[in-house]
Simulated scan of single mutants.
Amino acid sequence: MHIESSIQIAATDGYPLGATLFYADDSPHPERLAIVNCATGVKAVYYARYARFLADHGYLALTWDYRGIGASRPASLRGFKAGKFDWGSKDFEGVLQWAANNFPDSEIHVVGHSIGGVMPGYAASCWRIDRLLAVGAQYAYWRDYAQAVRRRMFLKWHVAMPLLSKLLGYFPGRALGWLEDLPAGVACEWAFRRARLEHPEPARADHFALLGCPTLAYTISDDPFGTPAAVTRLLDYYVNSKRTLVSLTPHDLHLKQIGHFAFFHDRFRGSLWPETLQWLTTGIHRRRILGEWPSARIVNEEAEDLEDAA
């Protein structure tokens, strides 16, 4: 039996965020709590099936919407002030504090899809996270898009999107069939993203080094956003996390395509989802490794120990 409870969580500036808790009726005080961070322009409800799967396996799972999206959307987005940095530094930080305060004895695991894998680095309390699973996680620097579709994606997301946002005061993604509507600030932050997160505000990268937990990141071969270059660019910021980048192809699952969004579709309940659960609970994965990076903090500590011994 599942229990699903709609709640509100306050961001650090008091903005109310719509969220849903998923759990089995016999686990009100779970050993592990999973926070699912959405992709840009995707409602939290899309991840409900994956959250139920986690609840079936003993988790308390939490899905939630960024300000301006889904259950956290105001009556009108025209002129609504919000950016992706707000999503991390205020919204995710508020969710993380809520989880730690209400379930102090639970491990906190974060599943971040696309921009959802960036959110921990914007949050001052990311040191509380015990595991980070990232799927297609990157911050949409256009030169990292898949080369075959880079020009088309640049025109769509870096020309058309900011122009429409400037004209209308928000981005009408739903009317165009391009994901959900977005606050203009979110759309422009995406459209004018540079190669480094420090530009134009260096302080935006301040908290990434606080993440000290293991991180497993998936790159999917037919994902035009989450290419190996894009995911690696993000992982380079989590310097004190032990990071593993693994690859997945549609052929691995006898499919023609997976892309950027399908990972959390119910058809992967018997394949991809169990392997994510295995890694979250045991640290074991089955995918081909493209790259591994140790925690700089641990490397430095080991070096200091060797110096002391000498």
Rank of each mutant, 00 (worst) to 15 (best):
D26T: 13
F53V: 07
Q8G: 05
V186T: 05
W127Q: 10
H29V: 09
L17H: 06
G212A: 14
F261M: 14
L168I: 06
A203V: 10
H113A: 05
Y237S: 04
A203R: 11
I69Y: 01
H109M: 06
A61T: 03
P250T: 07
Y237R: 09
R67G: 00
S295D: 07
Q8L: 11
I220N: 01
L216D: 04
I35Q: 01
A10I: 02
S6L: 10
L253C: 08
Q8N: 13
P274G: 09
Y59K: 02
L255V: 03
L253A: 12
L234W: 09
A44N: 01
L272W: 08
S72M: 02
I289W: 05
V299G: 00
D266Q: 15
E201H: 15
L210E: 03
G173W: 06
H207W: 14
A24T: 12
Q257M: 08
R52E: 13
G79C: 03
H260M: 11
G116F: 03
R193S: 03
I129D: 01
D105T: 12
I35W: 01
I289Y: 05
I129S: 00
V149K: 11
L182G: 00
E198R: 15
Q138W: 08
L248C: 10
A123V: 03
H158W: 03
S165C: 03
E292D: 13
K256E: 12
L280V: 08
R52K: 14
V36L: 15
A184T: 03
K166S: 12
R174T: 12
A61G: 04
Y66I: 00
D308A: 14
H254Q: 15
S271A: 12
R128P: 00
P200W: 14
G68E: 00
V45Q: 13
L168D: 02
L255N: 05
S114C: 15
L245W: 12
L277E: 06
R194K: 15
W178M: 09
E292C: 09
P172N: 08
R193N: 03
A184L: 05
L306W: 09
S106P: 02
G117Q: 10
I7E: 05
A75Q: 06
R143P: 10
T244E: 10
V149D: 00
I35H: 00
A203T: 09
R152V: 11
I258K: 07
P16G: 06
A230Q: 08
L197P: 00
Y141M: 11
L163C: 14
H158D: 08
L167N: 02
L235D: 06
I9D: 04
A134P: 01
R152F: 10
E198P: 02
L96C: 07
D105E: 15
G259H: 11
T20L: 07
W273M: 09
W279F: 15
V95I: 09
A148W: 07
L234D: 07
Y66G: 01
F225H: 08
R267E: 10
D308E: 11
D144M: 07
T227F: 06
D56E: 13
R151E: 11
G112D: 04
G58H: 08
N37D: 01
